[in-house]
Design a protein around this nucleic acid. Structure first.
Lengths: 190, 190
DNA sequence: TTTTAAATGTGATGTAGGTCACGTAAGTTC
DNA sequence: GAACTTACGTGACCTACATCACATTTAAAA
């Protein structure tokens, strides 16, 4: 499936656009290919785009002062990723974004998103709902963090995204769950 | 300050509405008074409103199977609160909302919000930005959970909302930080 | 004012998960 | 295919925080 069709199918789940409107919308996206391991956003960057995943798997993550990595999101096809704090507030990135596998993405600049939201009411509606879902998911994950132990969170993650288990190295899954790789290893060998 | 002025000042930070538009918007809100301890949303409820705090302090929280409480949010004046998962997905509430102090709130139904977002593009813009901020805040809190110990999170909370310390009982602060009340007590006595 | 309930402090003890150390296996690169 | 790097497993030990138990202080209710 082509980039255009993938995006169209994704957006059609939330809003209806005419073909002309969608063509206009799509004309603001730029397609890019990345290799496994390639960095899309590095902490400290000035940042002005968000990314829609067509193929492959990205990760967004934070590195603390002890160089420990915490993964915020695994971005699979039809997911959006960026450092939204930096993007919305026009500050430098504190979150990194890179490629776990080779990846195809569509890039949309912050300015273009805001322009499109302003020009096409339905597009603003789409982005409101996208963020709604992200917000709810983030709250759920926060609750799971407070409520459940590592084993429970691990099983939750696998139930939600079985594909991850085969694509993503275990130490990254540990960094998502917020446990050490040693602890994760012990969890699923018992 | 009157309810109308409080809401108007709050909304004006993000969008510009004509007086007629704002009057129309405001006509969809219903003002209600609650007493300390009163429940606004109980888990299991069918739920169709969100709440804008004019005065007082609310808490939204989850109770797990062991009857342990986890606080998602302390809602202070000009904050919005609800069980957004239940509200958006039209399912029964899993989150509770009640009053830490006597409170004045404005109620907006889910249907009216969607109607207003549809009728007035700027209103949709407002709600998109409100959720953006919520999403970013939620991600920051998630990161802090993974990255920092309880003492660090406690100091972070006090730095961000100094007012809480005097208004909110310590065991509720513990339930927000995700530690036991005993641990919290030990943290600030050393 | 008395009674009752809620909030808080503090010791003793248990445990999930971290850290360090060192091993093997499996991909990558030359 | 050898050399090197990255991923993964597992034991020994440590630490932050939970839990339980009980005392005390404060606030609400009668």
């Amino acid at each position: 499936m082509q980039a255009k069709e993938i995006l169209q199918a994704h957006i059609a789940k939330t809003i209806s656009l005419t073909d002309e409107q969608f063509d206009y919308l799509f004309s603001h996206f730029k397609q890019r290919s990345f290799k496994k391991g390639q960095v899309i956003i590095a902490a400290g960057d000035k940042i002005d785009h968000e990314y829609f995943v067509l193929d492959g798997c990205l990760k967004s993550f934070y590195i603390n002062d002890d160089l420990k990595m915490f993964i915020l999101q695994f971005a699979m096809p039809t997911w959006w990723a960026s450092d939204y704090n930096a993007l919305y507030s026009q500050t430098k990135a504190t979150i990194n974004l890179d490629c776990i596998t080779d990846a195809e993405v569509l890039c949309l600049s912050n300015d273009d998103r805001e322009k499109l939201c302003n020009e096409i009411h339905q597009v603003e509606h789409f982005f409101r709902w996208r963020t709604n879902r992200g917000y709810v998911a983030s709250q759920k994950r926060l609750l799971s963090f407070m409520n459940n132990d590592a084993k429970h969170r691990y099983e939750e993650l696998l139930a939600l995204y079985p594909a991850l288990y085969n694509i993503v190295p275990k130490h990254l899954i540990a960094a998502y769950l917020g446990v050490s790789r040693e602890t994760l290893s012990r969890l699923y060998h018992s």
